[in-house]
């Protein structure tokens, strides 16, 4: 073995921005995350040219997965056209030569901040969710070392208590996002701040989901066909947001997750939160023939 065998020609940057040692570490951790669904694997979380808290966790996972023939979609609260989403997508194109898309069905990797697309994801797609707080136990146990022991012991009683208190105080469960969910019957996760509407899409899904928190340096995964059960009491069924009967004012589509737009007269208008899904419907109503994939929710329900 000579020094020459151990080195390689100089380049300005490694392909995919992350250096090989960072990528290998992430690969090892991602495989462990798949092997133990829902368990939060600690990882190094390297510096990336973006502030922590803006999606660095998701960014690092996507960079590890990046290939020149990857097609990347980035969503920010359902929209593909926010500054954050566009700049992340451009970054992938620049460091990985990957194609950009806004179409859910064309993407191979979908990095998302806080929404799961309305169209069903296929078996060959990877969903990467950006996670601000990966610890479901934080509201009840601020000490992360103790929280880790509680995960080890599957000691989740206090989470049930939080839900019970909400029920007693308000008559219904007030947890809007980050709804604690039991993965594979063992670990409770916070499914990142996706609405309750989207949590059911992770249950027995065909795609692979990674959830990565860059600031908190934890990564966890939901493999395909894995049980993801929101914590619910036997006599109080899980309720998604009441958007079944809301109609999008731009596309006339009913039965999907909506953004509420308050009006000056006190009323509200609603528009589809999944922007690409809305755009496809708009274009089709103007005479184009875009294929809209099968959706998880049908007529506002998911069985």
């Amino acid at each position: 073995m000579s020094l020459k065998d151990l080195t390689k020609p100089w380049t300005a940057f490694n392909y995919g921005f992350l250096d090989e040692s960072a990528k290998r570490e992430l690969r090892r951790k991602m495989l462990k995350a798949i092997a133990i669904p829902g368990y939060q694997v600690p990882y190094a979380s390297r510096e990336v040219p973006m502030a922590r808290g803006w999606g660095t966790g998701g960014l690092q996972v996507t960079l590890t997965l990046l290939k020149p023939d990857a097609v990347v979609k980035v969503i920010d609260q359902g929209a593909d056209d926010s500054v954050n989403a566009v700049s992340i997508r451009k970054f992938f194109n620049r460091v990985g030569g990957s194609a950009e898309t806004e179409d859910t069905s064309q993407a191979t990797i979908i990095q998302s901040r806080h929404r799961v697309p309305e169209e069903k994801l296929r078996a060959d797609q990877v969903l990467v969710l950006q996670v601000p707080n990966p610890e479901p136990l934080r509201p009840v146990q601020p000490d992360m070392s103790i929280a880790r022991e509680m995960h080890g012991d599957a000691d989740y009683g206090q989470l049930w208590l939080v839900l019970y208190e909400q029920l007693v105080k308000s008559g219904r469960i007030m947890q809007g996002t980050e709804y604690p969910s039991l993965v594979n019957g063992r670990y409770v996760i916070t499914p990142s701040p996706i609405p309750r509407w989207d949590v059911k899409k992770l249950h027995q899904a065909e795609h692979l989901t990674f959830l990565s928190a860059g600031r908190e340096k934890r990564i966890y995964a939901i493999p395909p066909f894995t049980n993801v059960e929101p914590l619910v009491f036997d006599d109080v069924p899980y309720r998604v947001e009441d958007h079944q009967d809301k109609t999008c004012y731009r596309t006339d589509v009913t039965g999907f997750f909506m953004n509420e737009l308050p009006q000056e007269d006190g009323s509200s208008l609603y528009e589809l939160s999944d922007s690409n899904f809305g755009i496809k419907h708009l274009k089709n109503s103007q005479g184009e023939t875009l294929t809209i994939g099968e959706t998880w929710y049908k007529n506002g329900r998911m069985d």
Partner: peptide, 28 residues
Amino acid sequence: MQVTLTPTATDCRTNTAFEVMMWALSRP
């Protein structure tokens, strides 16, 4: 200065190998 990053043969091999192993573990 705009730099185009192209993967080397090693990059391609390791990335593909990882993807194969990731899907293998995801779908036992």
